[in-house]
Design a protein around this nucleic acid. Structure first.
Length: 470
RNA sequence: GGCGGAGUAGCCAAGUGGGAAGGCCGAGGUCUGCAAAACCUCUACGAGUGGGUUCGACUCCCACCUCCGCCUCCA
């Protein structure tokens, strides 16, 4: 069964086929952060969805080459740098570093390339593309010396968002002072330098300034992946105008169809409301870590709702994520321990268990139906727990089961953090085991309190004591 | 005003023209020195509302209600 993905362009679920004649390599571009502050969980929902997409494609045998750009020059970064009294590059570096730390915390696989807009080779490419568009008469320089894309030259503009431009209603966000433009919808390719930009400026044949936001993505995407991409992702709010603009610029420069499959994830809400600073429900990853949640718990909460549905992010949901992960952890621990018992010839897994494994991946094939896939995983957990309870699985079969989990986890990245037990706590646990074998419960309980005083909880399970941090 | 998405149990949520997955919470049980955990079992005669098509509708169609998004540089 092939991978099927919903294409924003056609509004249909389509069989995914890469351009590569061998059907192996996939070129994927994902819009990255603007590095003027810490990314919030809404941003990370998009990156986690893209991570799931990449990991599932890889599980299905594709070789994914992925680019995620960093927008490190625009109005917000310039404003932020000025407010902080720092040079633009120093200001954005802080947030670039923080962004990569957050990616690791959330176990998001690194893209192959993280081009930044201000890197000289990309600025040069943007200037080259703008120059070409000017030559072709597709772009023009207005009285304000900025360069704009002439929308009249690209009738397909609006096709991705399915907007009829003739019927657009001004929303009040259009700056009506921009009378220099021929058409209200014409977007900036190059913004002429002005004093507020300070030392942020690059020289171009038509004058000093800085690139517009849209051209950054077109330049970096085509520089690294070529004129035709298999997949381009982003949040729904990027559909219009950002991705429309990317299509217009790229296709006018290359003459080729820019993107084969457009994927967009829905927004998230927090506690049933739109996330906003004024509503007090605006979270960065750091905020949640500060509340005691782990990256993988946040990952679980953001990953396990289908990307095309609005996600209602709640603290209760995070607690649910913690409990669900605990169930997975217990099961993984159980099968990991069991497989080391007496060797034996084992055999193939019972059919119902391997079917759950296949069901997991088949569900993801269907436009990343993560809920269906998780249902299969939890069925696999319950059914194999039950089989173990009844002594129906051999150690060899359990080892096979562990392999199934490992292949599932290569997509989910939900494995438990390895926990390091301090030596003194380990020693206390060992002493407690000794007194327990003598059935000295008073000493045992006293040691349990002592272990608790070190910040650890010890639980006596069938398989011996288990430690967890308080 | 235009375009689009969504309403399924206390919460999150899947699939399907014919038996309503799964997770959290909750209840019962097994295990256990105690505690905790774990595991097993159970938990919607019902799908926003009202119509319609059909032998049969949560699923298809129509209307209405509610929520969310986009409509020119927000993931």
């Amino acid at each position: 069964m092939s991978v099927r993905l919903f294409n924003t362009y056609s509004r249909q679920t389509e069989d995914f086929t890469p351009l590569d004649p061998a059907g192996q390599r996939v070129k994927m571009y994902t819009c990255g952060p603007t590095v003027y502050n810490h990314a919030h969980i809404g941003n990370f929902r998009a990156y986690i969805f893209e991570d799931l997409l990449q990991r599932h494609l890889e599980a299905r045998g594709y070789e994914v080459e992925r680019v995620m750009n960093l927008t490190d020059v625009d109005d917000k970064t310039i404003r932020g740098a000025r407010a902080a009294g720092r040079r633009l590059a120093d200001f954005t570096q802080v947030y670039k570093d923080a962004f990569f730390t957050d990616l690791d915390t959330l176990r998001i696989k690194r893209a192959d390339h993280f081009p930044a807009a201000t890197e000289p080779r990309y600025i040069a490419r943007m200037i080259a593309m703008i120059g070409q568009l000017l030559e072709q008469g597709i772009a023009y320089q207005a009285e304000d010396r900025s360069v704009y894309f002439r929308l009249a030259k690209f009738p397909a503009y609006g096709a991705l968002a399915h907007l009829n431009l003739d019927e657009l209603r001004p929303s009040g966000r259009v700056n009506s002072d921009e009378y220099e433009k021929e058409n209200i919808g014409d977007f900036a390719l190059w913004k002429a330098w002005d004093e507020a930009d300070g030392e942020v400026r690059w020289e171009a044949p038509w004058g000093a300034g800085r690139p517009g936001w849209h051209i950054e993505c077109s330049a970096m995407a085509t520089a690294l992946l070529g004129p035709e991409l298999d997949i381009h992702c982003g949040g729904v709010d990027n559909i219009f105008p950002h991705h429309e603009a990317e299509i217009a610029q790229s296709e006018c420069c290359t003459g080729k169809k820019f993107v084969r499959h457009w994927l967009h994830c829905a927004h998230l809400m927090v506690e049933g409301q739109k996330m906003s600073k004024s509503a007090g429900n605006f979270y960065t990853l750091r905020d949640l870590i500060g509340k005691g949640f782990t990256g993988r718990e946040v990952r679980y909460a953001l990953l396990t709702v289908n990307y095309r549905l609005p996600l209602n992010f709640t603290i209760a949901g995070l607690e649910g994520a913690r409990a669900a992960l605990g169930r997975i952890d217990e099961w993984v621990g159980r099968i990991s321990d069991f497989r080391f018992q007496v060797s034996d010839l084992g055999g193939a897994l019972p059919a119902n268990l391997s079917e759950r494994h296949e069901g997991f991946f088949n569900a993801l094939d269907d436009d990343l139906n993560i809920s269906g896939a998780m249902g299969q995983l939890f069925d696999l957990i319950r059914e194999s727990n039950s089989a173990l309870d009844h002594g129906q699985l051999t150690p060899a079969q359990t080892a096979e089961l562990l392999k199934l989990w490992e292949s599932i986890n290569r997509v989910l990245a939900f494995e438990r953090e390895s926990i390091v037990v301090p030596a003194e706590v380990a020693a206390l646990v060992e002493r407690r085991q000794q007194v327990r074998s003598d059935k000295d419960w008073t000493a045992s309980d006293r040691l349990r309190d002592e272990i608790a005083a070190h910040g650890w909880i010890v639980k006596d399970t069938k398989d011996g004591p288990k430690l967890s941090p308080k």
